[in-house]
Amino acid sequence: MIRTKKLDEKKLNFWESIYIVEIVKGLVVTMRHFFINLFFPSRIITVSYPEENLPLIGNAKLKSLHRIKLRKDGSPKCVACMMCATICPSKCIYIEADETENYVEKYPKVFNIDMSKCVMCGLCVEACPEDAISMDTGEIVGGSYDRFRNYKNGGLFLTKNELFRHLPHETISKSGAANRLANKYLEDKND
């Protein structure tokens, strides 16, 4: 059986059926937009990403670009325990650990994040036992053609230089599992 559907097409009146009036009406709308935007370009709401960014709303800034928090003396809180690299579903974190002379014993010699692989899931932040890695910078990763170029030069490859930093006006916390060792290290440093 052939199923048919009757369309209720609107019956056009004379002025509509000769099109011209309606075309002019349509042109008036588009022309209005055109001339307003031509003479007042600031009314265009496009954001030229990645040069311009809208401020992030609410908790969205907790899923932004990664950083590694630093201790008071500027050494990284990270102890290269590999928890983030282990849990990372896209395997974008690469860490090489090494031994230090101070109490904490272990530190990351190399810490790279390949943002072209990162899916911004935030599992690394939750896995971190030292509260070292966090995604609270409020910066958004810019689009780029070059994933292997350094982040600061417009690429997507984050190394120690870009990751290890304080945020402006940040109060430096002391919490973390290797706290005793880290605190001992900091106390020694102050004395």
Binding site: V79, A80, C81, M83, P129, A178, R180, L181
Partner: peptide, 11 residues
């Protein structure tokens, strides 16, 4: 036992 797992090699 210390909470050293993050820097312990036995993990």
């Amino acid at each position: 036992h210390p909470l050293d797992c993050s820097i312990c090699d036995q993990v």
